[in-house]
Simulated scan of single mutants.
Amino acid sequence: MIYDFTNFIDLPHIGIDSIEKNTGKLIGYRTVGEDQISSGKYLFTKKHIIYSKIRPNLNKVALPDFMGVCSADAYPILTVEEKMNRIFLAHVLRSDYFLNFILSFSSRTNLPKVNKSQISKFKCPLPPLSLQNEFADFVAQVDKSQFACQMAIKLWRNSLKSSII
């Protein structure tokens, strides 16, 4: 956790409101300077996973591809690269299997929250790293295909609007 933001003023600040539920897409974030943050936050890199510990039912698990600072309401999780692919782990953390496990600890009614100790109790099968890497490559291909489809739909809608006018 860091408290002095002098050297991080231009870095992105990821609050849990910047993480889209279920998808982990990072949306609408600003810089540390723009948000004028002053309380303790966590530094993360593109090797981390950002996991929101507040309201775990929203399933906010992000995979940043940049360095930044995240809310103290989230944990930056770093995998041991020789044992676990971070994309694989992020998908496990978004899974119903993990969600059902972690929700069993969320007994607070006003603002459900989980802690590191509870998260560390989670156990799941760990495939060989080669299979995890294959999974991550597959996810990357699906993401590219999804993006291409979204762009095609956008282009189609724009051309449809143009032809109507």
Score class of each variant (00 low, 15 high):
residue 1 M to H: 10
residue 3 Y to A: 09
residue 4 D to T: 09
residue 4 D to Q: 10
residue 8 F to A: 08
residue 11 L to N: 10
residue 12 P to N: 11
residue 12 P to K: 13
residue 13 H to N: 12
residue 14 I to F: 01
residue 14 I to K: 02
residue 16 I to D: 01
residue 16 I to R: 01
residue 17 D to K: 12
residue 17 D to Q: 03
residue 17 D to L: 00
residue 18 S to Y: 00
residue 18 S to W: 04
residue 18 S to V: 05
residue 19 I to Y: 02
residue 21 K to I: 00
residue 21 K to S: 15
residue 22 N to C: 01
residue 23 T to N: 01
residue 23 T to R: 03
residue 24 G to M: 04
residue 24 G to P: 08
residue 26 L to P: 07
residue 27 I to F: 00
residue 31 T to Y: 09
residue 32 V to Y: 03
residue 32 V to H: 09
residue 33 G to M: 07
residue 34 E to D: 08
residue 35 D to T: 09
residue 37 I to M: 01
residue 38 S to P: 00
residue 39 S to Q: 11
residue 40 G to E: 05
residue 40 G to I: 13
residue 41 K to H: 08
residue 42 Y to I: 02
residue 47 K to S: 14
residue 48 H to L: 01
residue 56 P to E: 04
residue 56 P to G: 03
residue 57 N to H: 13
residue 58 L to S: 07
residue 59 N to E: 06
residue 59 N to Y: 04
residue 62 A to S: 14
residue 63 L to P: 03
residue 64 P to C: 12
residue 67 M to F: 12
residue 69 V to I: 15
residue 72 A to C: 10
residue 72 A to E: 02
residue 72 A to G: 15
residue 72 A to S: 15
residue 73 D to P: 03
residue 75 Y to M: 08
residue 77 I to W: 05
residue 78 L to I: 15
residue 78 L to A: 05
residue 78 L to M: 12
residue 79 T to F: 11
residue 80 V to L: 12
residue 81 E to R: 10
residue 88 F to H: 05
residue 88 F to G: 03
residue 88 F to C: 06
residue 89 L to R: 04
residue 90 A to V: 10
residue 92 V to I: 15
residue 95 S to A: 09
residue 96 D to K: 10
residue 98 F to Y: 14
residue 99 L to D: 07
residue 100 N to K: 11
residue 101 F to K: 01
residue 102 I to F: 02
residue 104 S to Q: 11
residue 104 S to I: 00
residue 104 S to K: 10
residue 104 S to F: 06
residue 106 S to W: 09
residue 108 R to C: 01
residue 110 N to E: 09
residue 112 P to D: 09
residue 114 V to A: 07
residue 114 V to N: 05
residue 115 N to L: 07
residue 115 N to E: 11
residue 116 K to P: 05
residue 116 K to I: 11
residue 117 S to M: 06
residue 117 S to A: 12
residue 118 Q to L: 03
residue 119 I to F: 13
residue 122 F to Q: 00
residue 123 K to I: 13
residue 124 C to H: 08
residue 126 L to N: 03
residue 126 L to C: 01
residue 128 P to R: 03
residue 130 S to K: 10
residue 133 N to P: 03
residue 134 E to I: 03
residue 137 D to K: 11
residue 138 F to H: 07
residue 138 F to D: 03
residue 139 V to P: 10
residue 142 V to P: 02
residue 145 S to V: 10
residue 145 S to Q: 11
residue 145 S to P: 02
residue 147 F to P: 00
residue 147 F to W: 14
residue 147 F to Y: 14
residue 148 A to F: 11
residue 149 C to N: 14
residue 154 K to D: 10
residue 154 K to C: 04
residue 155 L to S: 14
residue 159 S to A: 13
residue 159 S to L: 15
residue 159 S to T: 11
residue 160 L to P: 00
residue 161 K to V: 04
residue 163 S to E: 11
residue 164 I to F: 14
residue 165 I to Y: 02
